Computed example of a mutant assay.
Amino acid sequence: MEPTPIITSPLTPDDFAALTRAKDALESPALTMKLASVVGAPIEKLMGRLPAAAQGKVDEATQLALKKCLQLALRTIGKSAPSDSLLAPPPDKPHNLMHKLAVATTGAAGGAFGLFALPVELPVTTTLMFRSICDIARSEGEDVHRVETQLQCMMVLGMGGTNTSDDSADLGYFIVRGALAQSVSRATSEIAAKGLSSHGSTALLKFLQTIASRFSVQVSEQVAAKSIPAIGAVLGAMVNTVFIDHFQQMAHGHFTVRRLERRYGTAAVERAYQTIEVMGGR
């Protein structure tokens, strides 16, 4: 029998378990696989059936949706300052199911009208998803009224599951986050100086374009899943539920990592994260 690996992490057992769950969420199967299991067909094949103009519509709708949700989604979020005290009560749990039900409703409409419903459905769906991500961030001790936190929530929409067959899978999450960190920092500085109404700020526009280019890929997969003839309201609702569940998992993982980093430091959490990967045998 092989000896049990010794964990030399400064994290408590509970926090190490939380990080393990976070990694499972961040490295969950790609959205493509999840949608394929629902509609019963390869998404790649379905994307080939989309009209040539479909991608342009997706890109345009994605840009508009992200701009709208950044302005509107936080208006109904209650104030909750982050807690630095270990004795303070934990924030309320996020309302994941409520947001899933709301997005399922928009998916039912999208299933009935297909690509024609995209310009109307996507901004609503994206705003609901963004609000859910903010709710998850709040539950992990973030102050969602800080500009930097809002952009971190937006960044979740640019995340996807890592491919464990890649050589860089061990650090996939940290690589993606690091690649977006500078644009988050620049946009945070500009928004803090000029306010969210400053649509012309170069840093904010660049950040939104970066997130939109990543998010639109997954929106295209969602649209493809709804391209089956006579998909109907029920399957349309299921597709949207899978869509928001994917990003809720990303949000839970991302903001759990950030919470642990506030307690132990980034380097310690990243080392522990890598240890989980090695121990998992991936």
Rank of each mutant, 00 (worst) to 15 (best):
G232M: 08
A224H: 06
L260M: 10
S220M: 12
Q209P: 02
E261D: 06
G236S: 14
R259W: 07
I231W: 04
H246E: 07
A225P: 00
R262A: 09
H254R: 12
S220T: 10
I244W: 02
R259N: 08
E221A: 10
R259I: 08
A225I: 03
N240G: 13
V217P: 00
M250C: 12
R262W: 06
V242E: 01
A230I: 04
H254C: 10
Q222D: 00
A212M: 12
R259Q: 11
N240A: 15
I231L: 11
E261T: 14
H252L: 14
L260V: 09
K226C: 10
G232Q: 05
L208Q: 11
G265Y: 14
F255S: 01
A267I: 11
L235H: 03
R258C: 06
I244T: 05
G265D: 09
M250D: 01
L260S: 06
I244N: 00
I231P: 00
Q209G: 15
R258W: 04
M238L: 09
A251I: 10
F255D: 00
S213Q: 12
L208C: 09
A224S: 09
F247Q: 02
T241R: 02
Y264F: 10
A251K: 08
L260Q: 06
R263E: 06
D245A: 15
L235I: 13
V219P: 01
R258T: 05
A212E: 04
T256V: 12
A230M: 07
R214D: 00
A225D: 00
F255A: 02
E221K: 14
A233T: 13
V257K: 06
H252Y: 12
A237P: 03
E261S: 12
R259T: 05
S227M: 05
S213R: 14
R259F: 08
H252R: 15
K226Q: 09
G236V: 12
V257F: 09
A267R: 13
Q249A: 15
F215K: 04
D245K: 15
M250K: 14
A251W: 05
A233E: 03
T266G: 07
F207E: 01
Q248Y: 04
V257M: 08
